[in-house]
Amino acid sequence: MILKLLRQATPYWFLLPGLFILGTLLSVPLYKVIEYSLYDNVIIEPDPTFVGLQNYADMLGDSGYWSALFNTAVFTIGSVVGHLLVGTILAMLVNADIHPKARTVFRSLLILPWIFTAVVVALNWQLLLNPFGVVNYALQSIGLVSEPLDWLGDPDLAMWSLLIISTWRGYPFIMVSFLSGLQSIPSELYEAADIDGANFFHKFWHVTVPQLKPVIYGVALLDLIWTFQLFPLVWLTTGGGPGRSTEVLSTLTYRLAFVDFEFSRASTAAVTILGISAIFTMLYLINESRNRT
């Protein structure tokens, strides 16, 4: 009896070290960040003072925080919408009935933006969008703009540029997810719709969208979670600037911590990111479990 129990327990012994390391790596920083947000002068002073929720109160009175929150919302929603639009259109294009070789080539090419690391993406776009870069040169030579635009340096343009970069970088995930969804739609449904007199948009709305529905919501939420806390792409292109025009919560946190060395305030901002992400994650998990039943 005991022997049997021991034997059944065997696999869990092997899991233990992994669980322990993972658990520690997750829970200790999490706990520390929350703890820091309740103190003043952490890390710098050996003996920080407990201030309760004072840091949170300060933050709510700080216009810099609110503008970062607003920018985060714009950046996140704009990016996810961009990913969905571009991803859906491209998924449908590469799902089209063309020569199989051409299809493979297009599919591989279009996944590329996803493969590069954020640093490479950021540097490339910086070069492209530079006032003396290719984009400005192209726009000028076709006569769309009369003088070069400072895409990343102009406060009115920076967020738009960031959204374009983020869309370019993030659409492949949506495209790939939708592509497998599209491939599982039986062609008979489209044929039945053809006979029923449906045009392209009818078919998209009445056949494609309902069939993708289970995928759309989950994928969009996942994308939302990732984009919401996205740091490197923003930091390495605009760095949150010019001014504070593209400052998002993640760059604000980083700046507070490693530029201003205000670790308590940084922790407070980080906890709000954590909280909002947790809400999205809950929504995602609820949706997943609902899909499974």
Partner: peptide
């Protein structure tokens, strides 16, 4: 014409 398919091809969401 109208057609009846082998797998019926009914719109599943309708």
């Amino acid at each position: 014409i109208a057609m009846v398919f082998q797998n019926y091809a009914l719109y599943p969401a309708k």
